[in-house]
Each structure stands twice: as structure tokens, then as C-alpha cells.
Design a protein around this nucleic acid. Structure first.
Lengths: 145, 145
DNA sequence: ATGATAAAAGACAAAAATATCTTTTATTGA
DNA sequence: TCAATAAAAGATATTTTTGTCTTTTATCAT
């Protein structure tokens, strides 16, 4: 059991790949994306549809179509991707799964857990979709396996 | 999608409850635990069986039996509970789900994600199973809903 | 020893997450 | 306009997680 769901992992990998290709001036088809991030193609299609509906990623149909980001979208935080596919439980939920738990009525683990949650939130809000474009283009990173 | 699985949330709540009762000198039956942490009884039974097999929690069958902790076990870290039910993916896994990712061959998100993972690891290792006993006994916290 | 109690174990069921397949819609270029 | 392309949408399948039920085993008190 990892921190993010499989859906979310695929979404983030896909977004980083599309961002890189957008930076290089290309739109990308689902097949190319799935191949480069090592994800099941039809499942990834569903995920990107969701991101597209939420306005996180852009897409056009037809020849030379595909998924892409404009300059503004490249500066959006990775948190938007996570929220679009998994909701915001990961940013707001109680560590013990208790619905009553809040700042004013905390569960036992609240103070301890809050630090972790806040760090995760901070990380996902300061990491932009386009942050790794240069590293990816230079081949410093890969996104498959 | 929360950070911990439902299984893990129930496990942590149950462990805190049993720890409190052990501190008070009682063993606890599955029915009492399930009632106090608001979890499905037979499902919780499976989870506690797993913890018992792993030696994280102690139990005895028969009349006046139930689950409990000895003094040494009360000082074990909450991390042991998480590992027993969910494995150690949450402590070691890549944020993007990439198997190649490591300190020497990092994925794009590695440095950023590492901080979050380390904070979570630190929190779960410094929080002991018995840490909230006094707060729970005083009614400062509850573990249901 | 025996009956009552309570966890352990095993088989089974429902729900959610993950994955696939087919049809429809939009866009492009000839 | 028409054929080709590629995403969107809808229906379906599989796997994992979550949840239930029944039988077995161990322990205690009498």
C-alpha cells in the first residue's frame, strides 16, 4: 500500500511526460504517453479524460490532436492533478480515518499526523507540472518501470 | 483516497484502544474493541489475527481471554502496526510508483517526496503504541466515528 | 473431564479500484 | 464532402480491498 493510488501515480507520470513534450512543442497521443510511462493504455485514457474534464490537462481530437499543456497550465501545482483523480482526502483527512477529528476536536494522532499532511500538501503545491521538463528533456530522469 | 488504508486505520485505532485497556489492567474481547473504535467486528478480527501472528499484539483464548499488550509491547512504535497490516511500501516506495527509483537513481519527484516519506517514517517510529494511554483514559480523546 | 468462552482459521460475499473493449464525437487534411 | 485520426463516452471484466459467516482450536472454571 503506497501513499498514492495507482490511478494517481499514472496521472502524475503522464502529466510530467506530457509537460515535457509540450515544452518541446508537441501534442501527445494516448498511445505514446502510455508507452513512455509504462501504464495500461485504456486505463490511462480514463484518467486523462478525468483530468481533461477538470481542466487540468488540455486536449484536441482528430489528426495531430492529443494531450498538451499551455504555458499557464505548466505552472499549475501537482496538487491539482492529485485532487482531480483522488479528491482532497489526502490533504484534509484524519490519519485514523475519524470524521470528527479537526483542529478544535483532535484525534490522538492529530498533531503528529498534521505535520506529515502539511509537508505533503506543501510539496504538492510547490511542485509544478512543468518543474522537471529540462531534467526530462536532458534524459536525467525517466518515467517508466 | 486517504494516506492509510481502511485496514490500517482500524488497526491503529484498535491498538490504541487495547493499549489503554491494558494500561488499566484489562484484556479486551473483539466485540468490545469493535464497539469502541466503530469498526466491523469480523473484519477487525482478521486484522487483529494478523497483528497477533506478527507478534505486535498479544492474545489469549478462552474465558477472560482477549487482546492485550505487555509493558514492552506498549513501547513499540506505531510503525510496527502499519508494517504488519500494509507492508513497508509506505516507508520505502517511490511516490510515482517507479520500481527503479532509488537514492542513486532517483525519479523526478524523489528529492521532494523523500522529505514527506521521511517525516511519515519518523512520526510512526517515534509514536509508541502506548503514547496516548493517559489522554484516552482521561477522556481527552475518543476513537470512534 | 466437561461445558462455556473467546480467538484462530477458512470459506465466502460485496464493494471499490484497476483494467479492457466498443461505439460515438470532434477535428483535420485531402 | 469525405476519409482518417484521435479523444470522449459507455459498457463490461478482473483484481484487490473490505466485510461476513461458519467451523476449529485453545483456555478457563467448575
Amino acid at each position: 500500500m503506497a501513499i498514492f493510488s495507482k490511478t494517481c501515480e499514472y496521472a502524475m507520470r503522464a502529466v510530467f511526460y506530457v509537460a515535457q513534450r509540450s515544452h518541446e512543442g508537441y501534442k501527445v497521443g494516448i498511445k505514446e504517453i502510455a508507452g513512455h510511462i509504462n501504464s495500461p493504455e485504456p486505463f490511462l485514457a480514463k484518467i486523462l479524460q478525468q483530468l481533461s474534464r477538470d481542466g487540468v490537462i488540455l486536449s484536441t481530437k482528430g489528426p495531430n490532436g492529443g494531450f498538451y499543456f499551455d504555458a499557464a497550465s505548466l505552472n499549475r501545482p501537482l496538487a491539482d492533478v492529485v485532487t482531480a483523480v483522488d479528491g482532497d482526502d489526502i490533504f484534509t483527512g484524519c490519519g485514523l480515518g475519524l470524521t470528527y477529528c479537526s483542529e478544535s476536536n483532535p484525534c490522538p494522532l492529530h498533531e503528529e499526523f498534521k505535520k506529515v499532511r502539511n509537508q505533503l500538501t506543501h510539496m504538492l503545491h510547490t511542485t509544478t507540472i512543468g518543474k522537471f521538463n529540462l531534467g526530462l528533456i536532458k534524459g536525467k530522469f525517466t518515467l517508466n518501470k
